[in-house]
Design a protein around this nucleic acid. Structure first.
Lengths: 350, 350
DNA sequence: CTGAAAGCGCTAACAT
DNA sequence: ATGTTAGCGCTTTCAG
């Protein structure tokens, strides 16, 4: 019963080609016949069939996003940028959420399947090692978001540099014994942040207390969670007198967990321990968190733009773009800059 | 270049029908020929074309989710349930994020377009009034999540009842002057919660102080935000001595904002004001929030199941299923009995 | 400017 | 069990 171009062609007494032209805004149609076709189409409630169009046009106008940790603030925010840009550009977005590394392959396969999507947004995870091999040539445009690989376009936060800035900020405030609470090492950003932390300490001629570097071993959210932060701080506190006077924490949620661990022992931020974290989630203001804000939404938008550009220039060399997080100073680092606080209060996104 | 069943048929010296059968696990194929076909397919890296299959099969194996407020915790969590269930059932999920009411129509149109998706998940918003009319018959399976309409399957939280429970809990603790901080009235859940609040007060023979009911007027996130909660509490505090001793707040994030407004005035929770909110987000524990927990993930899963059932029984009468949030008692209500949990009900109609 | 016809790649009914 | 054929609904030459 669904009506097709044939129905409307017959009814409008034209050929199906003409009907098609009308719907594709092909200029080679008299304004008269165009009107006639449109009228009939409206009367019959004609709507083109997406898959039939896709098959004939050899494109789907759909993108796939392969994304881990659905409930992680960072990804949500990036995804929102992706979603909005897709809408603006007329693309549909298929979401493949990864709960476990083993799910990467099947989704990658689906995405690569001919005629499912035009391109892929691949988030934060490293590509399977033999990826290029196994799909030799069968692959399609893919941009890496928050990750890096020479072979394809990528877009990522300069986490090493950001960690240096965060650590440096604490050092500049006079701290000598600085610690780190980081996410799981399976996470690329977590590794980068560890590096950056070490660099900053080395540059300042400061030694690193091995025990003051607590790396999450949980795989849940790669350790970027309140619980992980709480546990890490508990561990850190076993250091007693040797405990750092300042700590870099790899996400705001972890910082919040860490703060509650501190509170349980009657310790205060920033008086007893100064903190700089990452992300700048909505509640960061509430806790007065000094944090490295990442341009998440913008990254999402740009990722889509990059992918679309790739469609247009399939043979351009891979492009790599980096974002440097911005230090947002509030109170958790012990540096009192209320004006920055106000500036960031009620900050609106969307 | 892309290889098709024709290529592999020729190479394997069989008909395309056989190739198709192999890939559709049709039993009518000798194990031998099956092997042969599979071997050639692997060698040639054959992958079926999704759209071609879709066109021929008249189904896409794809669902659309039309969802507002991407960054709202409630939706994220529900969406995760949706995503996981889709994966389990082999469906792809297209995400249409609504930033503004005006975007509903275009997305609804896209979703309804023939051959784009098999069914639609429509979240929290009311359907356009003339929906049934305008698409007379052209529509496809749609389930309403966190919203209600007689004409189609739906799935929603009993917000009225939940608000009664929340309010009742506060009343049972001895509070007479109870207030409400609610989301924007354009939100269905917000309206329901206002109703429930009123019912509970009436049932308890308590009068309502009009000024102690603060309803957000912002459209951003429909007022379900920290900022809105902060502002609402500020307003509430202008009541001075007439201020409620207990307040029902329509979300945890709002409660958090409200608490900081309280703190600024040196007021404490629950000593000065007792609070019960909604959601039970991750950080609720951190704040000791007594809250109405909604089975968000489960709702997402069930929504997909319902949609799939609808595919199988197109003519079954619409089914409506409700979820009653569970009261999770922590400390913000002033009742110090974390071990007391009121049981979670779930009842189904049809 | 427009109609006819040849695909796009696959499924499914129909023979054999 | 397997090959053949006719669609699925649209786009895109190719004539005219």
């Amino acid at each position: 019963m669904p009506i097709t171009i044939y129905d409307i062609a017959r009814e409008a007494k034209v050929g199906i080609g003409t009907v098609s032209r009308v719907f594709n805004n092909n200029p080679n149609v008299t304004i008269e016949t165009r009107k006639k076709v449109l009228a009939v189409s409206k009367r019959l409630h004609y709507v083109p069939h997406a898959y039939a169009q896709g098959l004939a046009r050899k494109r789907t106008n759909t993108l796939a996003a392969i994304i881990p940790f659905f409930t992680n603030y960072f990804f949500i925010e990036v995804l929102k940028g992706v979603q909005d840009k897709c809408a603006a550009l007329g693309y549909d977005l298929i979401l493949y959420g990864i709960n476990h590394p083993s799910e990467v392959e099947p989704y990658l396969n689906k995405s690569i399947q001919r005629g499912r999507v035009d391109g892929i947004l691949y988030f934060s995870m490293k590509l399977p090692v033999d990826f290029a091999k196994r799909f030799h040539g069968v692959t399609k445009p893919l941009v890496l978001v928050d990750s890096f690989d020479e072979s394809c376009d990528s877009l990522f936060v300069e986490n090493l540099e950001a960690a240096k800035i965060a650590t440096g900020h604490l050092i500049s405030l006079g701290h000598q014994n600085v610690g780190l609470i980081d996410g799981n090492m399976s996470s690329f950003p977590a590794r980068q942040r560890l590096e950056g932390f070490k660099h900053a300490m080395a540059e300042a001629g400061l030694g690193i207390n091995e025990k003051a570097v607590v790396i999450s071993t949980t795989t849940k959210l790669d350790g970027f969670s309140r619980d992980a932060g709480y546990l890490a701080m508990k561990e850190m506190m076993t250091l007693g007198a040797a405990m750092p006077t300042a700590i870099v924490i790899s996400s705001d949620v972890q910082a919040i967990g860490a703060i509650s661990a501190l509170r349980e022992r009657g310790m205060k931020v920033p008086e007893d321990v100064a903190i700089v974290s990452f992300d700048d989630i909505e509640l960061a203001v509430h806790f007065g968190l000094t944090t490295m804000r990442q341009p998440m939404y913008e990254m999402g938008e740009l990722a889509v733009e990059k992918l679309v550009q790739r469609f247009e220039h399939p043979d351009a060399p891979p492009s790599h773009q980096t974002f440097l997080p911005r230090l947002v100073v509030r109170t958790s680092c012990g540096m009192n800059k209320p004006e920055t606080y106000i500036e960031n209060f009620l900050h609106t996104e969307n």
